[in-house]
Design a protein around this nucleic acid. Structure first.
Lengths: 121, 121
DNA sequence: CCAATATATTCATGATATTGAATATAATAT
DNA sequence: ATATTATATTCAATATCATGAATATATTGG
């Protein structure tokens, strides 16, 4: 019997492969680790991850187009946050399978200049 | 302060991007849905998913090389199973984010010829 | 050994992803 | 208006992925 010939009794669902495509990249995973602590602007990620701004912007665009993160402008800064915190369940369950320690290639010594990081300026 | 300069108090871990790369493909996700019910041989997937044998074999190789599935020969047949059932937690949490109904493109009308599917032959 | 069955690999081509470099845009301050 | 700051986009070169076609391997049974 063909599954398409009948009204299904249970609704099975499969994930959208696009989610995994967006997650299949070390820089984008690093970005999401920053966003685990809440929203962050690009300069914040620049300071914490050490990637160049335009590179981060490209990777943020991939995550944005995949519907994983959203952005919000506040003056000069654009703050990013995850659309659905359940994304961290995906990351955490995947980390259980084969984890890698966070050996940041691009650890930076810069400090973030954004207003959130410098409230008294 | 650089994270690499100190002994970390907590061990953070990030998932291996290779896992997501392997999952970022509809045929491979369909294969894993078949394996949700337990081990299955290639002809079983051929019958249930309608993909050609050599195509399935290629996709199985990707999942195998990613360490997601393992194989076991029994006579003519090679049975595949997931290495770690936690992979389904990854799939399920991702499906919660953006689910798609199982509209199988390649639903086949073939029946599987393997001994497990035909115990009395 | 030969034939049949189940599965795997290789090859070639087109499509897509990666990433550095350069440039563009948008908001603010002067 | 102009300069500055934060961020985004475009372009081009390279690398990787997707996939059909053909072929190879391994097991079993004569």
């Amino acid at each position: 019997m063909n599954i398409l010939d009948q009204t299904p009794k249970i609704i099975k669902s499969i994930p959208n492969p696009g989610i995994f495509k967006a997650l299949a990249h070390p820089a984008r995973l690093a970005i999401l680790e920053v966003l685990r602590d809440g929203e962050a602007c690009v300069c914040h990620m620049e300071a914490h991850l050490g990637y160049r701004q335009s590179y981060l912007s490209q990777q943020l665009a991939v995550l944005r187009e995949a519907g994983i993160i959203s952005d919000r402008r506040e003056g000069w800064n654009i703050y990013y946050q995850v659309v659905n915190p359940n994304i961290f369940k995906v990351l955490d369950s995947a980390a259980l399978l084969s984890c890698e320690s966070v050996a940041k290639k691009h650890q930076s010594s810069l400090s973030c200049p954004c207003p959130k990081c410098n409230p008294n300026k």
